[in-house]
Deep mutational scan, measured.
Amino acid sequence: DVEPGKFYKGVVTRIEKYGAFINLNEQVRGLLRPRDMISLRLENLNVGDEIIVQAIDVRPEKREIDFKYIP
């Protein structure tokens, strides 16, 4: 289970104008929005990159997770 405030290693699987989709595993995916990136820009991410993200909002009923990147 993903818990708000905890850090997780994930893989960038898709990049859109509104953010990057990060997979923690095959069943768990969330969104990293540009506003939640500190010292990292969306255009510097590539599909396949491994990054450490912090879960900031977890909505299991909608199967949605918002992430934050903190270097």
Rank of each mutant, 00 (worst) to 15 (best):
E64K: 08
P60C: 07
N46V: 13
V53D: 00
V12F: 01
V47L: 13
D66Q: 08
G5T: 05
E3Q: 15
D36T: 03
N44K: 09
E43S: 13
F7D: 05
K9T: 10
S39C: 13
F21A: 03
G19P: 00
P34S: 11
A55P: 05
K6F: 09
I15T: 03
R33H: 05
V12Q: 00
E50F: 15
I15G: 00
E3F: 13
V12N: 00
V12T: 01
D49K: 05
G48V: 00
V11P: 00
R63C: 10
P34R: 12
I52R: 09
L31I: 10
D36K: 04
F7A: 05
I38P: 08
D66G: 07
I65V: 11
R33Q: 05
N25G: 11
N44G: 09
D57R: 15
R35I: 09
F67A: 01
F67M: 04
L31A: 02
Y8Q: 01
N44I: 08
R35G: 10
L31D: 01
K62V: 12
E26A: 15
V58D: 02
E50T: 15
E16A: 13
Q54V: 13
E3C: 10
G5W: 08
N23G: 09
L24N: 00
E3A: 11
D57G: 15
M37W: 02
D36Y: 08
K17M: 11
F21K: 03
K62S: 12
D1T: 14
I51C: 04
D1V: 15
R14E: 06
D66C: 06
E43L: 08
A20E: 00
L24G: 01
L24H: 01
I70R: 08
D66R: 13
L40R: 06
E26C: 11
Q54R: 07
N46W: 15
N44L: 11
L32W: 04
I70L: 12
N44T: 11
Y8P: 00
E64N: 07
E16G: 09
M37D: 03
R35V: 09
V11K: 12
R14F: 07
D49N: 05
Q54P: 01
K62E: 10
I15S: 01
I22L: 04
D36E: 06
I70Q: 10
L24R: 01
K9L: 12
E43Q: 11
R35P: 05
L45V: 07
R63Y: 12
Y8K: 00
V58C: 04
R63L: 13
P60T: 10
I38L: 12
E16M: 14
P71L: 06
P4S: 11
I38K: 10
A20F: 03
A55E: 02
I52E: 07
G19D: 01
N46L: 14
V11H: 10
I70D: 14
V53W: 02
P60F: 09
R29V: 13
P60N: 10
F7C: 10
Q27C: 11
K6L: 11
L24K: 00
I38A: 11
Y18S: 05
K62Q: 12
R41N: 11
K9H: 12
G48A: 04
K62R: 14
K68R: 15
F21M: 08
P60S: 11
R35Y: 08
N25P: 04
N44F: 11
P71M: 08
I52W: 13
G30K: 02
V11R: 13
V12H: 00
F7Y: 13
E61W: 07
E64L: 14
E61M: 10
N23D: 12
F7V: 06
I38F: 10
P60E: 09
A20K: 00
F21S: 03
L42A: 03
D66H: 09
L24F: 04
R63F: 12
T13Y: 08
R29P: 02
S39N: 15
I65L: 09
F7H: 06
L42F: 09
P34Y: 08
S39F: 11
M37A: 06
E50K: 14
A55N: 01
E50M: 15
I56E: 03
K17H: 14
Y8H: 02
Y18H: 07
G48K: 04
P71V: 07
G10H: 00
T13V: 11
E3S: 12
L45H: 01
V53F: 02
V28Q: 10
R35T: 10
N25Y: 07
R63E: 11
K6R: 13
D36S: 07
P34K: 14
G48D: 05
I65G: 03
V12Y: 02
R35E: 10
R41Y: 11
F67E: 01
I22W: 02
R41T: 15
Q54F: 13
E64I: 11
S39P: 15
R14H: 09
I56A: 09
G19F: 06
P4G: 07
S39V: 10
E16Q: 09
E64P: 03
N46Q: 15
N23V: 09
I52V: 14
P60R: 10
R33W: 02
R14N: 06
V58A: 06
D66K: 09
I22V: 12
R63Q: 13
V12A: 01
L24Q: 01
